[in-house]
């Protein structure tokens, strides 16, 4: 009896090296996607390299120490009061304060809006809110800043002590801007929940409220947090709208209604007034580097949350 190994191997007669059309298509498609991907990687790497080379010059060429830069509270790059000082702590504080506060304001609103759209009134709730949210996402940031300056700032000035400009105004404007981000991520997460999960809870005699608060929300929490982090990343990087309402004083404010600055607002304000290659300009690049680093941190957090979600 012959075993499989002894059987003569059937070899397809060689058809020569004649290329068929589908072979060519395959190679063309593969090359095209490869070139696009490679281009993307090259662009990103060159941006990182460029920002890093400029940003690190502050420390290596201009001799500013990292701790003076990160923890110094005096920003006087032109040396108007003696030695130039490059302390950016007030701006780091401003960036974190505005984006955290914005996330704090926007998250509950967004979660409720997404629940309304997917759980409470999935019919017209979604039809009405979806376009509204998409519209919110499409409004240019200068319009947000303008509205903030003409509506939010005077309101805060009338209600609270101070000028109205400051962290509070920035956070309010940012919270509206990141609302769509968090809402759409949360709504997607809610919509992708297996239907059986909700129904099993109902079948056990749970009310809608119990089902939402004890089954649905805990299950989608990692995804909602992903949305919140994405929203914070957007708030952290937003420049124009914040710059218009925050006041741009280079100090750590003592109240939410006192003029302050963020990393982004200082970069946009100062970049026109510096000479390329000067210590001042390099310090701005260092701030850009810090911003980019923070973005990476946010992306890492999102990755981590997603991995936890998968388990």
């Amino acid at each position: 009896m012959k075993t499989i190994d002894e059987r003569p191997v059937q070899v397809q007669p060689a058809r020569g090296t004649r290329w068929k059309k589908h072979h060519a298509e395959d190679v063309a498609g593969r090359s095209y996607t490869f070139i696009c991907a490679a281009l993307l990687i090259v662009i990103i790497l060159s941006i990182v390299y460029f920002v890093a080379s400029k940003g690190l010059a502050t420390f290596f060429r201009d001799g500013v120490s990292l701790s003076d830069f990160l923890f110094g509270t005096t920003w006087d790059p032109e040396g108007n009061n003696g030695e130039p000082m490059y302390g950016v702590l007030p701006f780091i504080f401003g960036s974190f304060a505005t984006s955290l506060l914005a996330a704090l304001i926007a998250s509950p609103l967004s979660i409720c809006a997404s629940l309304f759209m997917t759980e409470i009134v999935p019919g017209w709730g979604k039809k009405l809110l979806q376009p509204v949210i998409e519209l919110l996402a499409g409004i240019p940031s200068v319009v947000y800043g303008f509205i903030g300056l003409t509506v939010v700032v005077p309101f805060l000035r009338n209600v609270f002590p101070g000028q109205g400009i400051g962290i509070a105004a920035g956070a309010i404007v940012l919270s509206v801007m990141i609302l769509p981000t968090i809402t759409s991520v949360a709504a997607d997460a809610l919509a992708s929940l297996p239907r059986g999960l909700k129904e099993s809870s109902f079948a056990l005699g749970a009310t809608r409220w119990q089902t939402i608060s004890r089954v649905i929300l805990p299950t989608v929490l990692p995804s909602i947090l992903t949305g919140v982090v994405l929203g914070m990343a957007r708030a952290f990087g937003e420049a124009l709208a914040v710059q218009m309402v925050i006041g741009n004083a280079p100090h750590i404010p003592r109240s939410l209604f006192e003029s302050a600055s963020t990393l982004t607002s200082v970069i946009t304000l100062d970049m026109g007034n510096t000479v390329m290659g000067s210590a001042h300009s390099n310090a701005l690049w260092s701030m850009a580097l810090a911003l980019m680093f923070m973005t990476f941190v946010f992306v890492m957090i999102v990755r981590l949350l997603e991995r936890r979600h998968r388990i």
């Binding site: 297996p194 129904e199 099993s200 056990l204 005699g205 749970a206 004890r214 089954v215 299950t219």
Partner: peptide
């Protein structure tokens, strides 16, 4: 009414919780 009638679906759909919590869930409600 739904307490008197249990239901199980085609696809297993446990809650994203511990085994214990899955069972203790309904009684806790």
């Amino acid at each position: 009414l739904r307490q008197k009638i249990g239901m199980v679906w085609q696809k297993p759909n446990p809650f994203y919780k511990s085994i214990y919590e899955n069972i203790a869930f309904g009684p806790k409600y």
